[in-house]
Design a protein around this nucleic acid. Structure first.
Lengths: 334, 334
DNA sequence: TTGAAAGCGCTAACAG
DNA sequence: CTGTTAGCGCTTTCAA
């Protein structure tokens, strides 16, 4: 049924080794005539390399595995995978992604995936977080994406949330806004870091960071898309209170969208009365809001790209935690 | 370094066959005592099955491959993959997905992927479309997802666009709306089918389908997210013209979002003055619009689930083209 | 119930 | 420059 090197060798009247060399043997010196004859023959016979067989010899299959903490379900994950995929193009590596869902521990999934003998594995998280990797797995992953190992033993790629909040806040200040409120994502590492960056920017600008209003976007302890939103309560409260804000910073673009609706209901103009800025750059949304939303784009693509590098390199002393900068995408809401 | 069956056999003082049987041999009869002793030993020694090696023997690796027409980049793709992934859970199958990007032909990618000796392959498209599979590949794919083979030789799973448009239009009519406009997606099979369903529903209700207004959402020949939108022009024109519509059907949720903005600018209430309905159910968006959007959810998850079934079955005469129903998600815009 | 040996398709090492 | 041989880790006969 399927044709093997041996079959070709038989037909060509040479040894399997010769065929192997002719087809895969890189720059091995060999009569050009023979090589071409064999390549033609292989083509005609419909030969397809058997990577599984090669794998037994090499000890690994040209496969890179991502163990994802629910990651694959989010639109952002696709950006990470895209970055990875692009970087893998031409490297002759396939990407295999597994979700860490429903009652499967990291160890279990790690072991399951390892059976395929991938070249390397990465761990990826949906939200920026700290992950406590089980002891035995310290060197089971070549890199952690969008998260970092609690023990700091595995090289990590994380977004620089603190810096991003600092940057966007400075941007708002530079545009003349001084009273800035922040409707943040509660219970998330990203939110915590962003609050720090927000306050640092205020302090540096000589604004009162002690009095700064940082409010949670939802009623739950931890932000979730489905949790009951508080935006519709917060915004009128902010507008009617003392020191009505000149700008509102949103925890993400969906929150920003709700802020738009609330401001509109209150009859305020964006950005005339109140500027709005945010984090994520969920393109579908941000470009279609009216006015289009100024927001900090997460470095997802970049993470994927760097992860690919790390996965393919054999470097011994990779950097521990690498913080990746967001990108300010200026539209018309500021 | 890595421990093999032989290593265990040596330590246990039995043959490799015995170890193989003990660890993977299903219900093969064997001294329970021996089996348990070996399993324990394997565990202690940190044994991990080598699927590549097993693969040489079986002829395939427990892997299912998706060749995707740009698919992975869209949020909907994740739904298909999720459905697939869920269905594969417990089947001990991994999913490997490859993009068909930048100058790589279907044949090329198919051959590349086949080298891994996957159990089966599927072809998936981003938009509902007809794909002309190269002659040789007719049985290279076990199933086509979100598209169908031009020659109808490969079993296909496609969304029932015609039926969905029919259903949502009937829904609008049932809610008392008679003058309905449709801002559709030009140049796409989905749009074509939906227009047919839309018109069928109008005809059946005794409404004038000849005079029905079906307008393209963008200026380009083929719809794209980035093409220049015509919504802001169409909506006022419709409202100010004769027979101002009581409902507007949108080609997708993003278009619906723009319709919301245009109606708001014109001072119309949704759904008081004009009802809005749509296709996609892009949850982030649809639930957050004000009012939340009534829309037809695409059967992506279902496609993934059914694809998994087809990929794992050896059935000889699978159904040719299977149309999957959308699901009406009622919110407050109608 | 267990063991020995062959073979899956490939590549690496060593001869010729 | 090409051929022979051995072996990767596993499963599958066929014997014991």
């Amino acid at each position: 049924m399927t044709v093997s090197l041996q079959d070709i060798a038989l037909r060509a009247g040479v040894s399997t080794k010769t065929v192997s060399g002719a087809l895969h043997g890189g720059s091995a010196r060999m009569a050009v005539e023979t090589r071409e004859r064999i390549q033609k023959l292989a083509d005609d016979m419909g030969y397809v390399t058997n990577l599984a067989a090669r794998g037994t010899r090499q000890g690994w299959i040209p496969l890179v595995a991502i163990v994802a903490d629910e990651l694959i379900t989010t639109p952002f994950a696709t950006e990470i995978l895209r970055g990875l995929d692009n970087a893998m193009q031409g490297k002759d590596m396939a990407v295999i992604a597994t979700n860490l869902s429903a009652g499967r521990s990291i160890e279990q999934v790690h072991a399951e995936v390892r059976r395929f003998r991938p070249r390397a594995m990465a761990y990826a998280a949906m939200y920026h977080k700290v992950v406590a990797l089980p002891p035995g797995l310290a060197d089971g992953f070549a890199v952690m994406i969008n998260c970092r190992d609690a023990d700091g033993r595995v090289p990590s790629l994380v977004p620089d949330d603190e810096g991003a909040a600092y940057d966007i806040t400075r941007h708002l200040i530079a545009r003349g806004r001084r009273r800035i409120a922040f409707i943040n994502l509660p219970g998330l590492l990203a939110g915590e870091l962003r609050e720090a960056g927000f306050r640092r920017a205020l302090r540096e600008a000589g604004l009162d960071d002690a009095g700064a209003r940082v409010l949670p976007a939802v009623a739950r302890k931890t932000y979730s898309d489905r949790a009951h939103s508080l935006v519709a309560d917060h915004v009128p409260m902010l507008l009617d209170g003392p020191d009505s804000p000149e700008a509102i910073l949103a925890g993400n673009d969906r929150v920003a969208m709700e802020i738009y609706a609330a401001l509109r209901r209150a009859g305020r103009d964006i950005p005339g009365d109140v500027a709005v800025a945010s984090f994520d750059n969920q393109v579908d949304l941000a470009t279609r809001l009216d006015p289009p939303l100024t927001t900090m784009a997460l470095p997802h693509r970049e993470m994927g790209r760097l992860a690919a590098e790390r996965l393919l390199s054999d470097e011994l002393n990779p950097p521990a935690v690498q913080k990746l900068a967001f990108r300010l995408v200026e539209r018309q809401s500021v």
